[in-house]
Design a protein around this nucleic acid. Structure first.
Length: 313
DNA sequence: CGCTGTCAAGACGAA
DNA sequence: TTCGTCTTGACAGCG
């Protein structure tokens, strides 16, 4: 089993570089040269992204999550501009880097994306957000674009909320449906709920191990085979993080780093299935947490590292 | 210069 | 029905 590790959005090492420069709507309205301001921010963000990817290449990081704030105000309903054509060279250059150096990059829209919302406006926003993520992934010419979503709200109960999710999913354009992957969450939708939806819609499922620990009734082992099976011939993705603290209040929050022993425990469960996976390290210390985990794994296990972030079990 | 409150946006539970 | 909290990084504004 081959495991590749990844991190989210920003590098601790490149701490002066962010691909998420932004402007608030209020300040945008005050701005005299609106187009120039947006253009400046977009160029900043795309250049930062390129630098981060070059850093990933140097460090053999093959798995990375794009920030959802790459284009400022892009999904605001009262702001409209072409964020693809003027920057097509930059998108294509980044796309070439991804392909040439085998970096898997996906997106995970944030909490405002609620496909099963009962509020019409929220659903409209959600459609806009999904369209944006799709267009960005396409601009990078990513072969298998993946947008990771949560099921969303539980208004009127889980059963009705799941029905709404399925109904609304089927209203989406086919090309967006084909990108969506569902993740279990830490409060409402457990592994079995998400698996149920994924089976009906024939879409893959991302297992979030920390969310599973926060919110489960049954043993993970009962579901792992089915979860991995939802990916067909695509390499499955898994999210991994550790609780910020063991007290109830902070348990669900992410720790700066990864608890190596629980990571090893998880790998030992996973290795029975002997399938190659990509594991996204969701820790506040970002790539620093990834590299610390690798050092600890090298010390504590006999996993064979074929590069800085990839190992064989 | 550094700290703090605010931000376009949702959902939920407590008061 | 309204408010506080969750969560998060960027940034404006203030001292």
């Amino acid at each position: 089993m081959k495991v590749r590790l990844g991190y989210v959005a920003m590098s601790r090492t490149l701490d002066m570089i962010t691909p998420s420069h932004t402007i608030t709507y209020t300040n945008y309205l005050k701005e005299e040269q609106k187009e120039e301001k947006l253009d400046y921010l977009i160029n900043c963000n795309l250049d930062s992204l390129e630098q981060i990817l070059r850093y990933n290449i140097k460090n053999n990081i093959h798995f990375y999550r794009l920030t959802s704030k790459l284009i400022p105000l892009v999904t605001h309903k009262d702001v409209s501009f072409d964020y693809i054509t003027p920057y097509i060279n930059k998108y294509e250059l980044i796309g070439v880097l991804l392909k040439k150096y085998d970096i898997r990059m996906d997106t995970h829209p944030d909490q405002f994306t609620v496909l099963n919302s009962t509020n019409k406006e929220v659903l409209e926003n959600t459609n806009r957000i999904l369209e944006y993520h799709y267009r960005i992934l396409k601009a990078f010419k990513i072969d298998i674009p993946i947008i990771i979503l949560h099921v969303g709200s539980s208004v009127f109960g889980k059963k009705k909320a799941i029905e709404r999710f399925i109904y609304n999913f089927r209203q989406l354009p086919k090309y967006i449906q084909e990108c969506i992957v569902l993740e279990n969450d830490d409060k409402v939708y457990q592994v079995e709920d998400v698996l149920y939806i994924c089976r009906i819609l024939n879409i893959p499922m991302v297992l979030d191990y920390h969310h599973y620990v926060c919110n489960h009734n049954n043993d993970l082992d009962e579901y792992l085979k089915d979860i991995l099976g939802t990916w067909n011939n695509i390499r499955p993705k898994i999210h991994f993080s550790s609780p910020k603290s063991n007290n109830k209040k902070d348990f669900r929050s992410h720790h700066d780093y990864i608890d190596v022993d629980s990571f090893i425990t998880f790998i030992e469960i996973l290795k029975k299935y002997n399938i190659d996976v990509d594991i996204m390290i969701e820790a506040k210390a970002k790539d620093e947490a990834l590299f610390r985990l690798v050092r600890q794994l090298k010390y504590k296990t006999d996993y064979y590292f074929i590069d800085d972030t990839t190992f064989i079990v």
